[in-house]
Design a protein around this nucleic acid. Sequence first.
DNA 1: TATTCATATTGAAGATAATCGATTTGAGGT
DNA 2: ACCTCAAATCGATTATCTTCAATATGAATA
Lengths: 106, 106
Amino acid sequence: MDNDYLDNAKVFKAFCDETRLRVLELLRSGEKCACVLLEKVEIGQSTLSHHMKVLVDSGVILPRKQGKWTYYSISAEGSENAARLLRELTTVTIASDNDENTRCCE
Amino acid sequence: MDNDYLDNAKVFKAFCDETRLRVLELLRSGEKCACVLLEKVEIGQSTLSHHMKVLVDSGVILPRKQGKWTYYSISAEGSENAARLLRELTTVTIASDNDENTRCCE
DNA sequence: TATTCATATTGAAGATAATCGATTTGAGGT
DNA sequence: ACCTCAAATCGATTATCTTCAATATGAATA
């Protein structure tokens, strides 16, 4: 129950940081190796690793290990899930202006 | 340019915090006065005010002042903007698996 | 198994965000 | 004008996030 809020918040953490938005933008043109991301975004290796973890945990980014390298790509499923969730969170269930909840302190 | 990242990040900050997700959920059933939100979410008055500012700044929530009271509601326009932006940020422009960017370190 | 290299993890620093109590602002009512 | 009350702002504290350097892990190779 309470965890739902935290789980949902986690999804959108992917889009809340400048560096992660930069990484996402790079991945829009296709799957990339971590080393490629590292040389394009100006941050340290451990910092990139941390951000990739946040992105993967959000479900928006998919990791693929191949030998020593890790490749990352945008997950269509994860993205749709995020979009669907955002819509859910902002869908007004009752449009009535005379809603009892509207009035207060009177 | 650089500000785009920060501006975009700001939109999704609305969904990154447990308390703000609680407020959003309450607003799904229609416009609410700040005092109603205050008694339903267990936080201090100044804290609620801070969160409402973040929500309004994201564009997802619309404030309406009426006398001493402020009413808040989910903005359909702001929500659609956020949904559209999320889709934009996660849309892969080139689906090709043979993308030159995929390969690295070889 | 020893070495190399890519990535993950750890630990510590600094930056940003959340929270609260106290005060201020601003609109209504007396 | 004064008082009242809702909401915003301020100042300080605590918590969370970002970042880096150093170290550990784990896969490939010699």
